[in-house]
Design a protein around this nucleic acid. Structure first.
Lengths: 353, 353
DNA sequence: CTGTTAGCGCGTTCAA
DNA sequence: TTGAACGCGCTAACAG
């Protein structure tokens, strides 16, 4: 049952070399003869060597540096939560001498993103966790990183034509499909539906939103008879205009009883409802921002779909470390669960710990 | 930002004693003069000493033994999943020399439970993870454990009048309430509801089930107009009789379109439906057993409520270790999330890793 | 190219 | 009652 655990000293003996040599092949730092190399590798294959993490941690002298490139955030927003996960991992990995730096860009802003990517090309680091946005700029960057052999992991969004070590994120299409399903479970005949959309909904930074919408629409197409769907575009920078257009919308469309917001700003709509006195039978939103959660509890938002941002950040950093520091294999793709939260289960929800 | 980390050598110097002495007060193994004791404690208070886990792990010679007392299980059932979580924790803690043994009893069987509890009184172990069932027997056991100062954690079910270090489990009442909510979101006028109950539903081993049912019924009472509710009692040991009574039930009650199973045996009903050709618009069940998941995917079960059994086991053992080995405080109560799974999000779900 | 060795911080002797 | 010394498994510097 319990497999004997080997030490590098054992390996050395078995291969008939010294521990120094074993260490050299384990960390491929060269200066090893073909012959020794083979002997050691042979033994390694046989025994499934698992290094003692404590000894590594204790002896570690080498410093590692990881860089996380994500959008700027404000407290309690989506990227903030990702950052908390990153920081939790950072704390755990500190004893292994890995140091984590952030580099941030302005979300949706191509120039800012480009600047960060240029910085990433020059920066000296052992690995990168990147939330990629604009395709061309990203691809260019990855070419350089590939050349420099700097491993990188994508978080939140993926580009397939790259050599990314891993992708961590949600299946946005499916989460949109699910939004459709849970919204429509509250549907009654003759009711109408409204989609609340961003003003910059066509920006590449909003792909998640677009995919969710696809999934949502597909659910309706596949599973529901004809329903009337409206959309309202709102602009988070112009709250007054939004109020007015929402007021008008609800006045003109009294049959609208169900609504969805495809990004984390359901709280804009939720608090509008609260203040205006307009109501929806069901409002579905994304992400457990503090404000969203408050409105979930008070009833304006009926369902929130969660994607474990903190866990995403945590996993991303851990995976970089597994790969770079511990030389482990990592899965190329890690989808996050699609969590369904409502007033009744939100209090028991947690991501980490 | 980064606070300097002290070693016991530093403490020794600061207190003007030797490292041996510091070690003695840290582990209160006595043989320390009042004077030295005070000097060391003073320093400890000032610096918020955090021992280096790696060094502890590496140097550890002391062996720890934990015992987990849970019901017997078969592959892929609920307790099996808890056991996988326990074993995962066991593997992680192996380097700290903690060894984990199982002691098992027959679920719902008082004599078997009593026997295990008696064993637990005698056994020499550093801590216990117990899935408690029968109250009186359990309380008696805890008295003894308290006297022996053996810490214990309850998993799955809790008894308040004990000195349990921690309780890990689900809020069953709320998960039943939620079952009501998601089932009723599919309700349409004139439909009727069926509760599938265990034959031994009054056994103390089925408290979870009873609580869930309370929550469920309360949801209906609070939130719904009068609906017709039936119950069918089924007996997992007599499948033929069950088939017959289910056949009869569905024949007699054609309006029944919604159903709930309050334990993890929704697959009994699901596969009955599949085979008999009877259908329910919505069937809600508990726990992600393999068979339940299959029926969720094929559509006979519409929702499953999950309670992260693997995580429960994992946390339980980790908490014992935090307390016993690392002398950390642990939270007295850890509620598990109430996860809502359906065909569309089940593939992305995971508990650990 | 290879082998040897001095720590890393802590637990545990053992001699004083 | 105290202090010094060794070893846990691994890394990395150094001597050969």
């Amino acid at each position: 049952m319990k497999s004997k655990s080997y030490r590098i000293k054992d390996i050395a003996e078995m291969a008939g070399v010294s521990i120094g040599t074993v260490d050299r092949v384990l960390h491929n730092r060269g200066d090893v003869s073909q012959e020794s190399m083979e002997k050691v590798k042979k033994v390694l294959k046989e025994i499934d060597y698992k290094p003692n993490m404590f000894a590594i941690g204790l002896a570690a002298k080498k410093k590692y540096s990881f860089v996380c490139a994500i959008p700027y955030y404000i407290e309690n927003d989506y990227w903030y939560t990702i950052a908390t996960g990153i920081e939790k991992a950072a704390k755990e990995l500190q004893p292994f001498n890995v140091n984590i730096d952030f580099v941030q860009y302005k979300h949706s802003d191509e120039a800012s993103y480009r600047k960060v990517c240029e910085e990433l090309r020059e920066i000296k680091t052992d690995a990168i966790l990147l939330a990629p946005i604009f395709e061309e700029i990203t691809i260019e960057l990855t070419r350089i990183l590939d050349k420099k052999k700097t491993p990188y992991i994508f978080i939140d969004h993926n580009f397939l034509d790259t050599k990314a070590l891993m992708y961590i994120g949600q299946n946005s299409y499916m989460s949109g499909y699910i939004a459709g399903k849970i919204l429509m479970s509250d549907y009654e005949k003759d009711q109408e539906i409204v989609l609340f959309l961003n003003n910059n909904k066509d920006n590449p930074a909003e792909v998640q939103m677009q995919r969710r919408m696809e999934g949502f629409v597909n659910f309706l197409t596949e599973q529901c008879d004809k329903v009337t769907i409206h959309d309202v575009v709102f602009n988070k920078d112009k709250p007054e205009e939004d109020r007015i257009s929402l007021d008008r919308f609800f006045q003109q469309h009294p049959k609208v009883k169900l609504g969805v917001v495809f990004n984390s700003r359901a709280h804009y709509i939720g608090s509008y409802l609260k203040e205006s006195g307009n109501t929806l039978k069901s409002l579905v939103g994304y992400d457990l921002l503090k404000k969203n959660v408050e409105l979930l509890k008070s009833g304006e938002i009926k369902y929130l779909i969660g994607q474990r941002p903190a866990l995403q950040g945590y996993y991303g950093v851990k995976a970089l470390c597994d790969y770079v520091v511990f030389k482990k294999e990592v899965d190329p793709i890690k989808y996050m669960p699609i969590d369904i939260l409502m007033k009744e289960n939100i209090d028991y929800y947690f991501e980490l710990e």
